[in-house]
Design a protein around this nucleic acid. Structure first.
Lengths: 73, 73
DNA sequence: CTTCAATGGGGTAATTGGGGGA
DNA sequence: TTTGTCCCAATTACCCCATTGA
């Protein structure tokens, strides 16, 4: 258990557009991921979303499939 | 109930720029939040704004949504 | 007193959100 | 089922320069 403290001032946040660029998708798609709960988000008081860079990187790594590292080089 | 524990010694004040960094927005945006009454602010005699760290942290926590722990593909 | 980064105010461009449909 | 696109309204970002704060 133990709920992790939300005390990370060094946590870099990304805009929807930046995340969209990383995944090569439309910003709207990123919005849907957030709505569907596939990725955590931080909303500004105005309603716009920001995403944790570490979480985005982790998601990218999770969805990344590498080819066998047989002797490729 | 009233709260006699007014620990202002622990009450740090943040500048617009610091709050902006936490939300990954422009300092001007934080100013608009204060003007719109979305966040409480303290004005210096010169007109500059300062924000209560506890209030900012609380607001940040409220607007934060964690990703679903279940991996639905 | 001098310096200089940060802030406020105003105005304008860019991004985002939400609904709906392809 | 997921994504991209069009609509419009709201929010946010960047430009100017005078003032404040340290």
């Amino acid at each position: 258990m133990s709920i992790p403290h939300t005390r990370q001032s060094t946590e870099r946040l990304l805009t929807p557009g930046e995340v969209a660029s990383l995944f090569r998708v439309d910003p709207k798609t990123v919005t849907r991921w957030a709505t569907a709960g596939r990725i955590g988000s931080i909303r500004t008081p105005g309603g716009h979303r920001r995403f944790r860079e570490s979480e985005v990187q982790a998601l990218l790594a999770t969805l990344t499939t590498e080819a066998s590292t047989a002797d490729a080089r």
